[in-house]
């Protein structure tokens, strides 16, 4: 199909779908006045039943905890797929990565190094803070894990590839990613061992508004945080391996 024909088909489809969209949009409940029965129910009973004040976390880790397990494994699959794709050909044709001819490798500016060194630690700390406050205020394993991974990226910008690889070992990230996902699944099996339904909260719930309230949700949140931070760490590492500077001596992994 030629590009022009493809574009024509696309525009034709848009024109055909436009009346349908107009009909749906005009018969939707008014914006801001939807009936939200499920959400209202959780807002009403969540604090009383689960002793946490962040309803989004209550849904992610408890009411719909099984969905999050599936999502966790989707992430594991995507990260595994990326790793396999990138590792597949590395070093197959030649031992050393190529460099683009005629492109010089400039050293980093001092200001970049300084700012990244300063910010990397704070970013990881902030990620931990967000991760820990999953049950009380907006936060949680997903957001915290991603922020921690951004801290890792800042560390790379500050230290350069070689310095970064001294601290960032792939085994560490692999263990965090796999271990986090396993921790989540094991939480479910722990409930089953006690004769309860899968992922049923059986730990003491604690006091609402307390940092360590929510019982089993805390463990699941930690698992998600580990898995997300580890998963994004693996992604960073694999992509950086693809773009690393040529080195005179091949580093062994």
């Amino acid at each position: 199909m030629s590009p022009r024909l493809r574009r024509a088909v696309f525009l034709l489809a848009c024109v055909c779908l436009l009346p349908a969209f107009a009909h749906v949009a005009s018969t939707m409940p008014a914006f801001g006045a939807h009936p939200l029965p499920y959400g209202d129910l959780i807002n009403a009973v969540g604090v009383r039943e689960r002793h946490v004040t962040n309803m989004v976390s209550a849904i992610n880790f408890d009411y719909r905890g099984f969905d999050t397990l599936g999502e966790e494994f989707m992430m594991l699959c995507a990260v595994t797929g990326t790793t396999i794709l990138l590792r597949g050909t590395r070093g197959e044709t030649q031992d050393r990565p190529q460099r683009v001819p005629g492109r010089e490798i400039r050293p980093r500016a001092d200001a970049t190094v300084l700012i990244c060194r300063l910010l990397a630690g704070f970013t990881v700390l902030f990620g931990l803070y967000v991760l820990l406050h999953a049950m009380t205020t907006p936060g949680g394993g997903f957001q915290g894990g991603v922020i921690i991974a951004s801290g890792l990226l800042l560390a790379f910008l500050g230290e350069g590839y070689r310095g970064w690889r001294h601290v960032a070992h792939s085994e560490l990230f692999d263990a965090a990613e796999g271990g986090g996902a396993a921790l989540y699944a094991l939480c479910g099996f722990a409930s089953m061992l006690m004769g309860l339904p899968f992922l049923q909260n059986m730990l003491p719930l604690g006091k609402s508004g307390d940092l360590f309230s929510g019982g089993l949700m805390l463990v699941e949140n930690a698992g998600v945080g580990l898995a997300v931070a580890g998963g994004f760490g693996i992604l960073l590492l694999e992509f950086l391996e693809e773009t690393r500077e040529p080195e005179p001596v091949q580093e062994d992994e």
Binding site: G39, D40, N43, M55, G209
Partner: peptide, 14 residues
């Protein structure tokens, strides 16, 4: 839908 500093009321859908 965060009820840290106020009692649970009607909120947006979590």
């Amino acid at each position: 839908p965060i009820f840290y500093s106020r009692p649970p009321t009607l909120a947006v859908d979590p």
